[in-house]
């Protein structure tokens, strides 16, 4: 069943058009990878989807399945997009001084509970849940008491994103260059974390520069984004081809 459908999306930042007619369809249970050279609009797509205030959608549609009905995401506030199941793991997670991770994660969890009509959980009830998720992702419990992302290493920030994903349990996870800046061990831990959270009825979109992460999280589809549009789609072998030959051959093919 279709979960996300993007049709002819145009978006600008600071008045400059970055997305120029992007279309993409993601079904339940699928893993998609979006690759593309620098400046092709990969991060813009992620941010537009999450509702970042700096990005403006000028035309096109983004629809997301909520309770078996396709709903217009662009009309929703960032929190409502998240509550309905869209999650963006940031390329550069934001530091929030003074707010402990535990407070932040419980607030996120309770916001979802409230939205779904469930009872909110107390600090005491939440603590074991958090510990369990940390364990699932092989994370040190010291993450819990630290301020959100403050003085975290690059790898710790990325892991913290996946911890948030484990707490919120989204239906669609958009991972924006989650692999960049990770060493081999961290990459494996983060990928394992994502794989453990996969279910038949959720989907993952990986935005990446490198084929490397796709060895761990194997995609069903690979798309090439170039100048704000998807110019080629294929199976996982497309990623290997790009790794080997770069993007030039695709552009040349297009020109013919």
């Amino acid at each position: 069943m279709t979960m996300l459908e993007i049709k002819n999306l145009h978006a600008t930042v600071d008045g400059k058009e970055i997305l120029k007619g992007l279309s993409l369809k993601v079904n339940e249970g699928e893993v998609h990878a979006i690759m593309g050279p620098n400046g092709s609009g990969k991060s813009t797509l992620s941010k537009v989807l999450a509702g970042h205030p700096d990005y403006e959608v000028t035309s096109g549609e983004v629809n997301f399945e909520v309770n078996l009905r396709m709903r217009n995401v662009l009309d929703m506030s960032p929190e409502d997009r998240a509550r309905n199941g869209i999650f963006l793991a940031y390329q550069y997670p934001v530091e929030i001084p003074g707010v402990p991770n535990s407070v932040f994660l419980r607030a996120a969890f309770n916001a979802v509970c409230k939205y779904q009509g469930a009872k909110e959980v107390s600090e005491e009830a939440f603590a074991p849940v958090l510990k369990e998720k940390c364990k699932l992702l092989g994370m040190d419990e010291k993450f819990i008491d630290r301020e959100v992302n403050v003085a975290f290493s690059g790898g710790e920030k990325k892991r913290n994103e996946i911890l948030q994903m484990a707490i919120i349990q989204p239906r669609l996870a958009f991972l924006d260059e989650t692999d960049s800046g990770l060493d081999v061990d961290s990459l494996r831990i983060v990928s394992d974390g994502v794989n453990k959270l996969r279910r038949k009825d959720n989907a993952v979109v990986l935005v990446t520069h490198y084929q490397r992460i796709l060895n761990y999280i194997v995609p069903d589809f690979v798309h090439v984004l170039y100048q704000g549009k998807i110019i080629k789609s294929g199976g996982k072998e497309l990623a290997l081809e790009i790794e080997e030959k770069g993007y030039d051959w695709i552009l040349k093919d297009l020109a013919h």
């Binding site: 509702g51 998240a82 929030i96 996120a108």
Partner: peptide, 20 residues
């Protein structure tokens, strides 16, 4: 925006940031 994109409503997010 970061807090909102983690399901937390705007007013609550504001309060959380001020407290932080």
């Amino acid at each position: 925006f970061y807090l909102q994109s983690r399901c937390i409503g705007r007013a609550e997010a504001m309060a959380m940031l001020c407290r932080g």
